[in-house]
Amino acid sequence: MHFLVSQCYSWEGYHLVQALLEDGHEVSGLHGPSLSDREVHLSMYLGRHAMFSEGVQNRDYKAYISFFGSAETDIVSHRHVDISYEAGDAPKRGNQILLPILYGEWMPRDEHALSWNGNQIPFEDAYFCRHALPIKPVMQTISKLLSGNREIEKFQFYTKEVCPEQEDRTVIALARNLTDDLAVLHRHYAQYSRFYN
């Protein structure tokens, strides 16, 4: 299958492209006119993959995936899926995946806090500790959803601790080990901090 991903060198886009490539899909990536140092760094990882290409190709895309409402209106695809962070009561829109606060390699951060939705959130913040999910399993799950035949209307991710008890099959609960995950991420940041800025 072939997918088109906007903002492919953003932190979130990079991890989704990686998950799609690991699942054996071809990916075309779109990005803005100028790249940050981090995006240039991440583009070097993706650019070496034989199943990845930049720009819109003359292909029949299984889906066009955009982040945060960044879809280009002139792109034709079987379906369009927008991936956004939930902020309070998000308006109901079709073909949408809502993310909780995420953490993982290359996330926008400094030594003590991550940047999320325009805010600096310390790693010991109660909201972060209760709701944050690791980006890699989230994007791996999204890759599986995108490649399946089930129509995506609106999916939402939660940690197992806060997942609402309901029969709604569009709610996805994931487990995590926040303490171990953060220890690994802090070591990664210490080693590659110049690429995080």
Rank of each mutant, 00 (worst) to 15 (best):
S10A: 08
S10Y: 07
E12Q: 14
E12A: 13
E12N: 13
G13L: 06
Y14W: 11
Y14R: 05
V17L: 05
Q18Y: 01
L21Q: 04
D23S: 15
D23Y: 01
G24T: 01
H25D: 04
V27Q: 03
S28T: 03
S36Q: 04
E39L: 11
L42T: 11
L46V: 02
G47P: 00
G47T: 02
R48W: 00
H49K: 02
A50L: 03
M51N: 10
G55W: 06
V56E: 09
V56F: 01
R59T: 01
R59V: 04
I65N: 07
F67Y: 10
G69Q: 08
A71Q: 15
T73M: 12
T73V: 13
I75E: 07
A87S: 13
K92F: 11
Q96S: 10
L98G: 11
P100C: 08
W106A: 08
P108M: 01
P108C: 00
D110T: 13
N117C: 04
N117R: 08
G118D: 02
I121W: 00
P122R: 08
F128E: 03
A132M: 06
L133F: 09
I142M: 14
K144C: 09
L145P: 08
G148P: 11
N149P: 06
E151T: 15
E153I: 09
E161R: 12
E161Q: 14
E165N: 06
E167V: 10
E167N: 10
E167A: 12
D168A: 05
V171H: 10
A175C: 00
L178C: 02
L185S: 04
H188D: 15
N197S: 13
